[in-house]
Amino acid sequence: MNTIAFFTTLNVIVLLWAGTLNNPFKALFALVRELITVPRFLILFTAMAGILILNKYELQFEQEHFNYLKDFTPMIFQWEGFIVKHVQEFFHSTWLTPILAFFYLLVFQALIIGSIGVYLIQHNKTLVYATCYAILINYAMAIPFFLLFPVNEIWSYQPAGVTFYMLEVFPNFESVYRPLSGLNNCFPSLHTSLSVTMAILAFRSGNKRWAIITGISAALIIFSIFYLGIHWVSDMIAGVCLGILASTLGIYLGRLTHEKATSSTNRKVTGKNV
């Protein structure tokens, strides 16, 4: 896990530079400044961190209190059949597997962190707030499905005939990564929803360079969930819908928060001048 964290950090630094052509460490200073000077952002950032922690402990809560629920995996298989298996058989290649595993494991996380950093560097506070709200909404809406609508990853459902190619690149995936994500926390695909969210926000930001980076990354990450044998098509469709919803609400709430924060600051300045 330390190796993943190290390379994720490197990816974040590279993405921040590529997305802004600025010193990537400016993002850290900007983040600290916002947390100290803008109470609304501190509350929002804390809430976002809280939902991520909640997601971490959701698996334990599910195992203790929701292990009696029906498994909906057979129903999904009846709908989809062997679509993902055919995708794997058509595209599988020894050179492609490590590239897509890299995007699934490392670029995905770096894309989320990097998005906040890019907007901090560019002083685009509306998008900073929008990104935090959108992450919150993604997890808040996905967790109930994880608890109440359990669907196993496609590779683990033997009738689907799908191979888990992640193990070719990361043999210890199940022991290292699995504690962070339950085997039946499949619907909707958060890899899809968050990638789509970051891409939509980037396109709305006006930063063409960042929009291209997030757009290409999102496409590769979505493809990787099928190629590596992790998600069903239904997971992806639900993830796209969630990503569109979360980004739309995130932008609305981000603008609202920025307007209120600006208005509050202006009142304080006016009061001092008077």
Results as ranks from 00 to 15, higher is better:
L242A: 01
T73Q: 06
G206M: 04
F25M: 12
P24H: 05
T270W: 11
L220V: 07
L194W: 05
L100D: 09
L54T: 11
L42Y: 04
F25K: 08
A27S: 12
L105C: 14
I13W: 05
F170D: 15
A261I: 11
G254F: 03
I113T: 11
T20E: 00
T197W: 03
F77W: 14
Y227V: 03
G215D: 01
I143R: 06
A199G: 07
W155I: 08
Q60V: 12
Y139T: 14
Q122W: 02
I230Y: 13
M48N: 06
A219L: 14
M48A: 07
G117M: 01
K208F: 06
L136P: 03
F102H: 08
H65V: 11
F72W: 09
V84S: 11
L28I: 13
L201A: 00
I76T: 04
S263Q: 12
I43N: 08
F82A: 13
K272R: 11
L10N: 04
R267S: 14
L96R: 03
L28V: 12
V269F: 04
F170E: 15
Y252L: 13
S189E: 06
T8K: 09
G81N: 04
V84E: 12
V118L: 04
R267F: 13
T248C: 09
A110E: 03
K70C: 00
V151T: 10
L136R: 02
T270N: 13
M166T: 14
K56G: 12
F77K: 05
C241D: 07
A130Q: 04
I244G: 07
K85I: 08
S175M: 05
I244T: 05
A101P: 02
P74F: 03
